[in-house]
Design a protein around this nucleic acid. Structure first.
Lengths: 144, 144
DNA sequence: CAGGATCCCGCTAGATACTG
DNA sequence: CAGTATCTAGCGGGATCCTG
């Protein structure tokens, strides 16, 4: 049918992907980025540079720096998560052939757009921790 | 010590919680909210009302509505996730003793603040799906 | 330093069946 | 309608050992 109404076009553009639909690829993508390590890594990259308003920094970090900053992360999860982020084009991996080798991870522009949100999520968790804790006490008290 | 400098106070307030620290409670909270179903449920609640700019809507939804909107979610995960959200004070659960019973879930003010971010995450996944897909093709092509 | 490879445990998502 | 209860397969993720 060559007859496509404006409403149909609009609907197609707006609904190209919908994470509420189980089969939609964006559901899987949402599952990937809704992940503790993804959130922390994306929040970490570039976070050092923006400490005092230096927004134009290189937003990159070395493997060992990440490993130290994200306390408690295993090498496996760190590497695994970084790989998936690299595959999705959110970070770039750069190997500098020094001795020993130096590997840096840097946010791409795509990754940067998500970085903002992840910092927001992390900040939310930190600033509302007390509220949540209080709510849990209330809830548990009511049940018990 | 009664002598607390302004800088100390400021540092204490700012760093009260840090999700980069493994033992910090906010790390666990971050893990909870960095979850597919949490994201989808929080993004869903109130999403119907704001469709056309009605921001003051009741931002509530019935169990069955959520179940239908979040295609593919099992009752177990839906109930379980809703319980944890209720416990953390992000949603309220209201039982109306009709026949059969009606249960509605509504965002609290705390939940609303996270709702905004979750909608952002969901929208990000949907709008950047094509970019990510293209990046994966490039990456897989380079490796293969 | 920055991983790769393996083993293995625990939890949790998902399916199924039942209920007030 | 809105759950609860139970079971199980699968994998997320930690620990350990090894390498260029």
């Amino acid at each position: 049918m060559a007859t496509t109404t404006a409403a149909q076009k609009r609907a197609q553009e707006k609904m190209a992907y919908d994470a509420f639909v189980a089969a939609c690829p964006s559901r899987k993508l949402l599952d990937r980025i809704s992940n503790k390590w993804v959130t922390l890594i994306l929040a970490a990259l570039g976070s050092l540079e923006v400490d005092e308003g230096c927004a134009g920094g290189p937003r990159s970090m070395r493997y060992s720096e990440l490993s130290r900053l994200l306390a408690g992360v295993s090498q496996k999860m760190l590497t695994q998560t970084l790989r998936s982020l690299e595959r999705d084009g959110l970070v770039t991996r750069t190997v500098t052939p020094t001795v020993p080798v130096t590997v840096t991870y840097e946010l791409t522009d795509l990754g940067l757009s998500l970085h903002e949100m992840m910092r927001g999520i992390k900040a939310w968790a930190e600033t509302h921790m007390d509220d949540v804790l209080a709510n849990r006490d209330t809830y548990d008290g009511r049940v018990a």
